[in-house]
């Protein structure tokens, strides 16, 4: 079953008086449980593609379906809700809420969902933080963690809602190679254990060995899948 279906996707950005064609008719299907890497040089359109899949940007033309739902006709509220329930994000710069501690950061999406009791939320967040190796850092604020630790918190937060897809835009870009490798190992094991679809972009060839499928993008077009 495909969790993501993209047909004829184009995205144009106005830049001063010119138009940048970031995506030029992309067709892509991503199966549930994939561990996919989108690779390509800078400016090739990989981040734009990830943004489209993550429902944070709107297409100029074409369709993006997440779990069979065409997102082009959804309202802002519906799209936000879709992101909350179906998509997890791991940002390049470990975007965490600075005023919340590790545990609270992981709890954040679950509290937004409001489906579980506080005790259930806490238990779930603790379990995930234990799983990413941060069992001793519950009360640390992001400012008190290293880059690798922060990225682990971001992974735990991305997974806590049990989303269908986790998107990671160059997740190891700001990490040293050892920490980067541990993060990728973690993503790999989570993919296996939870069956969550991981899609990450990178231009680091070392990262590619972790992916089970690779999509190569160049000048806004998929050149190899």
């Amino acid at each position: 079953m495909n969790i993501v279906e993209i047909n004829g996707l184009t995205k144009d950005y106005p830049l001063d008086k010119t138009i940048v064609h970031a995506l030029r008719g992309v067709d892509l299907k991503i199966a549930q449980g994939s561990l996919m890497s989108i690779i390509g040089p800078s400016g090739s359109g990989k981040t734009t593609l990830l943004n489209m899949i993550g429902c944070v940007d709107k297409a100029t033309a074409g369709t993006v379906k997440i779990g069979g739902v065409d997102i082009s006709g959804l309202s802002d509220r519906q799209i936000t809700d879709l992101r909350l329930h179906k998509v997890g994000f791991i940002f390049q710069t470990f975007n965490l809420i600075p005023v919340l501690n590790t545990l609270e950061n992981v709890e954040f999406p679950l509290l937004l969902m409001g489906k579980l009791s506080n005790a259930q939320i806490r238990a779930k967040a603790k379990k995930l933080l234990d799983a990413v190796g941060l069992g001793d850092y519950f009360n640390h604020r992001p400012g008190e963690l290293s880059g690798g630790q922060r990225q682990r918190v971001a992974i735990a937060r991305a997974l806590v809602t049990e989303p269908s897809i986790v998107l990671a835009d160059e997740p190891t870009a700001n990490l040293d190679s050892v920490t980067g490798a541990s993060i990728l190992n973690l993503m790999q094991s989570m993919n296996k254990e939870l069956g969550t679809t991981f899609i990450f972009s990178t231009h680091d060839p070392d990262v590619l060995q972790y992916a089970r499928s690779i999509v190569k993008i160049h000048d806004g077009r998929i050149v190899e899948a």
Partner: peptide
Amino acid sequence: TSEIGMMRAVGAQKSF
């Protein structure tokens, strides 16, 4: 912007 945008990305509604 980063903090608020990230909150929105992970599912915080505008009302939040």
